[in-house]
């Protein structure tokens, strides 16, 4: 009788711990995948673990999260590894997941309800892609103006970004590698950006060419890597930095390809 209740008790503890550990690992992986800084992931997970009544030790690796969960007396433990899903930066998901961690802490949610809310957050779609296309084209055209381009150059950059970003969207929807997508997109944008030289319609053709590919620069991974550096997560910081550098190199390759095709001399 005693043995059975002990066994049952142990099995219950194990199941609870397993559920909490899986939730924490998946939560941290989702935050990592949407481009949150490592310190944010740490603080959110710590808050959740305190509410669940467990100790958690987390290892944040560039493409994996390993969570080890102990009960309060350090007698039972469970560990779980999770891979981030999706690689695109998503601030809406970041905000929703951070909010969820506060909800768990303040409403004292159990891990089953929390997992339900977590699944809801993951199902939310991104912004309308046509809206993003329009806003990005306008943004890059404003960029050209900020660098001092005349209005014809701004128009060229608007058209270049429109087509370049459309190519990027279509290729990413087909799950083509993001590096090849960047090269292709930069190539198309730079060919159109060269029209200032080709048709002689702009007074500042070099600015049109130069700014036509700037929408592809991975700015946020650079900044995230800086934040991880300050927080001491050197591995994640280096991995994000190298990923951003590779995308920048791909961008330059596409730009050089476009300039070579249009036989542009370097500005």
């Amino acid at each position: 009788m005693r043995i059975t209740s002990d066994t049952e008790c142990a099995a219950l503890t194990h199941d609870l711990l397993k559920g909490k550990c899986r939730f924490i690992a998946n939560y941290a992986a989702a935050l990592l995948g949407c481009g949150a800084t490592c310190i944010r992931i740490e603080k959110n997970v710590k808050r959740i673990a305190e509410t669940f009544g467990v100790h958690v030790d987390m290892t944040l690796l560039p493409s994996h999260v390993i969570a080890v969960v102990w009960d309060m007396d350090y007698t039972h433990s469970y560990n779980c590894q999770s891979k981030p899903i999706g690689g695109a930066i998503d601030f809406s998901r970041n905000i929703a997941l951070s909010k969820l961690s506060w909800q768990i802490a303040e409403d004292k949610l159990n891990y089953v309800d929390a997992a339900g809310k977590f699944e809801q957050i993951l199902l939310k779609p991104r912004l309308n892609k046509w809206l993003v296309l329009t806003l990005t084209s306008i943004a890059n055209a404003s960029f050209c103006r900020l660098f001092g381009g005349d209005f014809n150059a701004v128009g060229i950059v608007l058209f270049a970004t429109l087509l370049g970003f459309l190519v990027k969207q279509v290729m990413l929807e087909d799950k083509i590698d993001v590096r090849i997508t960047t090269v292709a997109s930069a190539f198309v944008a730079s060919v159109i950006g060269a029209s200032g030289y080709l048709f002689g319609i702009s007074g500042t053709p070099e600015l049109a060419l130069g700014t036509s590919v700037l929408f592809l620069v991975p700015g946020i991974p650079y900044i995230n890597s800086g934040s991880d550096l300050f927080a001491g997560h050197y591995l994640c910081s280096m991995s994000r930095f190298i990923q951003a550098v590779i995308l920048t190199i791909c961008l330059s390759l596409g730009l050089c390809g476009g300039m070579l095709l249009m036989q542009m001399k370097f500005f």
Binding site: G35, A88, I89, D90, F91, S92, R93, R126, L127, L131, V132, L135, T136, S137, I138, A139, N140, S142, F143, L146, F215, G219, I220
Partner: peptide, 12 residues
């Protein structure tokens, strides 16, 4: 305008 556009890429 540039900030809004780049924010929309990151799904703000």
């Amino acid at each position: 305008m540039a900030a809004i556009g780049f924010a929309s890429i990151s799904n703000t």
